[in-house]
């Protein structure tokens, strides 16, 4: 499951960043990818739709939510946790 989750998330992030999926590296931050706050909100929406999950994220306090957005790898593991919780 994990590989396909990661691939789907990277595809979503790559689309938002207007990059090829293989240009998106786990250690990259949203800033590295050029994704701004609106791009982040749209990415989270696409992730929620793709995995049928609800992501706890408030744009007013991005650092304080339990959903870690500090890097691509962090986002992948946070989504994986939400997907596991769903199943």
């Amino acid at each position: 499951m994990s590989d396909s989750v990661r691939e789907k998330i990277i595809a979503i992030i790559a689309e938002e960043a207007v990059l090829d999926p293989d240009q998106v590296k786990p250690e990259m931050t949203l800033e590295d990818l050029g994704i701004d706050s609106l791009g982040l909100v749209e990415s989270i929406f696409k992730i929620e739709e793709a995995f049928d999950i609800s992501v706890p994220f408030n744009a007013n306090e991005p650092a304080q939510t339990e959903f870690d957005i500090s890097s691509v790898a962090a986002i992948v593991s946070a989504v994986e946790a939400l997907v596991r919780a769903r199943v």
């Binding site: 909100v41 989270i44 929406f45 994220f57 408030n58 744009a59 007013n60």
Partner: peptide
């Protein structure tokens, strides 16, 4: 809700 600017 979609914009994620509302408080709960």
């Amino acid at each position: 809700e979609g914009l994620r600017v509302m408080t709960k």
